[in-house]
């Protein structure tokens, strides 16, 4: 293994760590909206680290371009899907739990 392989192994493992932490968070967190924060952990840094680590292995080839596209799709569709989910749940009548003071007025403006 040369230094590039080591760097890939390091980045893929670090990405795997963040993905795993996000999964743990999705199980541990108390309600839907807090779970979404944990999920976005896996969608951002976890995915990015793994995909950049893979790019290092393929060098300047078509495969790298395709991985860039995968990363771009994930980074664009991830927040869009998250917003669609949060908005549908919020307008559908599911309110966040355990809000601190100063936030209760938001709940009443909701349909």
């Amino acid at each position: 293994m040369n230094w590039l392989d080591w760097l890939t192994a390091l980045m893929v493992s670090a990405g795997g760590f963040f993905v795993f932490v996000g999964g743990v968070g999705a199980v541990r967190m108390p309600d839907l909206y807090t779970r979404m924060h944990a999920t976005s952990l896996t969608d951002t840094l976890g995915s990015l680290l793994i995909l950049v680590g893979l790019m290092l292995q393929s060098g300047f080839t078509l495969i790298t371009l395709k991985i860039v596209l995968v990363a771009a799709f994930l980074l664009v569709t991830g927040p869009t899907a998250a917003y669609a989910l949060a908005n549908a749940a919020f307008l559908g009548g599911q309110l966040p739990e355990g809000l601190q003071d100063g936030a209760s007025d938001d709940g009443e403006t909701q349909p």
Binding site: V12, G15, V19, G22, G23, A26, L32, R35, M36, T39, T42, D43, G46, S47, I50, L51, L54, I67, V70, L74, G78, A81, A82, L85, A88, A89, G92, Q94
Partner: peptide, 23 residues
Amino acid sequence: PSVYDRVLAVNMLGTKTVLLLAL
């Protein structure tokens, strides 16, 4: 417990599938 939690989980499963395929 809610259907939105399940959708969130399925979405997460999907993005993880993408990563697993790449790996």
